[in-house]
């Protein structure tokens, strides 16, 4: 009364198990295929069939959504079968599995970091591959996500009026993501935050902070003369110059 699957699984006949595993694999019953492939890895070690077993075994994890293990087994395939024609695909899939794990920007981005590293390694190793374009665009996608995360955390400090922290964090976004599209917005926000920070400072700390406001504002105006924020930043600049003059004259 045992199912066919159970009978095969316990048959202790590697050839038969492998045949059935391949059958399940092609029928897209990946969970069962996985169980059976696992049994034949050891007996087929050093045999020609081992390569396909390892390759399909990795895919069973990918198709069942177990991306952490999928990434691992694709990687293992690539190191074991260095000369295989499937190696490029396995290297790519190892990175792509990590990409699948990359969550929304509000959550931990460790998998994004891993995926980016793996895609970069892929692009370096197979510069001619037609998958390089896709790898690069996925890298861009994940870097944009990480940038947004850092940008939002800087904005959080701005919202809760932790001005120093906002300035440090905005500065870090500019430093860590030189390719950012938000450079103008960030520099504007930095001028704005510094302006508010100064206006809420003790008198004794003001001159020093006013100078920073002036520097950030001037810098912004020279860099983005056509920015929609120019008028506002000019106001920060003029007010700060004015106030600094008054403070220094006293």
């Amino acid at each position: 009364c045992r199912s066919e699957f159970e009978t095969i699984r316990t048959s202790n006949n590697p050839e038969q198990i492998l045949a059935k595993a391949n059958e399940y694999y092609l029928a897209e019953e990946y969970q069962r295929a996985q169980t059976l492939y696992e049994l034949v890895i050891a007996p087929f070690r050093g045999q020609a069939a081992a390569e396909q077993i390892a390759y399909r075994y990795a895919y069973t994890y990918y198709y069942t959504g177990q991306y952490v293990l999928a990434s691992y087994y694709f990687k293992q395939f690539a190191t074991t079968y260095g000369g295989s024609s499937l190696r490029e695909e396995a290297d790519f899939m190892s990175a792509f599995s990590n990409y699948q794990l990359s969550p929304v920007y509000r959550l931990d981005q460790s998998y994004s970091v891993q995926a980016i590293e793996a895609f970069e390694e892929f692009a370096n190793r197979y510069p001619e591959s037609e998958r390089v374009a896709q790898a690069n665009s996925l890298i861009d996608e994940m870097r944009a996500k990480m940038e947004l995360k850092d940008f939002e955390s800087a904005k959080l400090y701005m919202d809760i009026e932790r001005y120093e922290s906002a300035l440090t964090s905005f500065g870090n976004v500019l430093k860590d993501y030189p390719e950012t599209q938000r450079a103008e917005e960030i520099r504007y926000l930095m001028a704005k935050v510094q302006y508010e920070y100064t206006s809420r400072s003790f008198r004794a700390r003001k001159p020093e902070r006013l100078r920073v406001t002036i520097e950030l504002s001037e810098n912004f105006i020279t860099r983005y003369p056509d920015s929609p924020y120019v008028d506002e930043v000019t106001r920060y600049l003029n007010e700060s110059i004015e106030e600094l003059k008054e403070l220094e004259n006293v």
């Binding site: 959550l107 400090y157 922290s165 964090s169 870090n172």
Partner: peptide, 28 residues
């Protein structure tokens, strides 16, 4: 001086929910 405050391992809780509670902040 604190440069970055990094939060790792939050695979359900959104980062700002944790970050806003912290007393260690960049620049301090």
């Amino acid at each position: 001086t604190i440069d970055k405050v990094v939060i790792n391992g939050n695979d359900r809780t959104h980062e700002h929910v944790i970050r806003r509670e912290l007393f260690t902040r960049p620049g301090q």
